[in-house]
Simulated assay, not measured.
Amino acid sequence: MTATRPLSLVTGASAGIGEAFARELAARGHDLVLVARREDRLRALADELQRTHGNSCEVIAADLSDPAAPESLCRALESRGLQVDWLINNAGYGLPGTLVANPWQAHADFVQVMMTAPTELAWRLLPGMHERRYGRVVNVASLAGFVPGTAGHTLYAASKAYLIKLSQSLALENRDAGVHVSALCPGFTWSEFHDVTGTRQKMNAMPGFMWLAADEVARQGIEAVERGKVVHVPGRINRTIKAITEWLPDRLALWLSHRQSGRYRNHHD
């Protein structure tokens, strides 16, 4: 890695918003560490970005549902002499069904990926950012972290609300060290997410104005953290939903959230 290029680590970089972050950061002159389970996809993306932008792209295949993965990942960085300037905690997925419809191990894996791993990666990488007096951390949360929880995908909104609160605290704790921390909170985004959760057919019935492209979400996330914006909700319609939800009485907001969630979520799987 050259001294003039920031080094960005992107988790969940094999598709969707994570891949979009990798492409946008590479175009802005960053070297990259790409992390995900699917090594073949990571290597194809790394080769493409290196040819296009002349940057360096390291590939580390890791399953963040493994509690040992964050420490192992950071040891791999150290062994390669890599110092992370930007941490993009993007890895995530949805777990369809109610709480009791899934085995406990599925929930434990989900909490590990969505909450524990991003927290541990920040804990392990922030000290180096402090030493260099520069760093950026983007925790990819969701508009779901602001609206009332719904039946089905029980832990998803809860995990995203956690990332928002975590980002707010980290932003305050690290701002005097030259480190900016932001929670990026997109709404509906074109990606593989809904194919994996089995809700693609429902999602295709949603109006087009509700959606943002992954590259636009990533671009706004990068610009927000650079400005020191602690929480960013991309898209006017998403900001409107957030504002309405905050204004409504809790009981009414919960009822509306439950009623509307049937359009894009399977309540009783």
Rank of each mutant, 00 (worst) to 15 (best):
K242I: 07
V225E: 04
V233P: 01
P127C: 07
S142F: 14
I237H: 14
D31N: 08
V10Y: 00
Q105S: 06
T150D: 01
S182N: 05
T197Y: 03
M210R: 08
R136T: 03
M206H: 08
V138D: 01
Q220A: 11
E24K: 11
D31I: 06
N238K: 06
A117V: 02
K202T: 12
D31V: 04
T154Q: 07
G198F: 09
A161L: 13
L172Q: 14
I222R: 01
A91N: 09
I17Y: 04
T150P: 02
P118S: 02
M115R: 01
D109H: 04
W211C: 12
G262M: 10
V140E: 09
S72Y: 00
I222P: 03
R219A: 12
P70G: 01
H30W: 10
L121W: 05
G178E: 13
T119D: 00
M115V: 15
W190A: 14
L254H: 06
E223I: 11
R80W: 06
V179C: 07
L184D: 03
N55H: 15
D47S: 15
G16D: 07
N102C: 06
L73K: 07
H53Y: 15
R75T: 12
A151T: 09
R219W: 00
Y156V: 06
H53E: 13
A243N: 01
L143T: 08
E223W: 05
L252F: 04
V35K: 03
H268E: 10
Q105P: 00
P148E: 06
L42Y: 07
A20L: 05
L126E: 11
S182E: 03
I17A: 05
L248Q: 02
L121G: 00
A213N: 13
E71W: 00
E39W: 13
S79E: 15
S142H: 12
H194Q: 15
A224E: 08
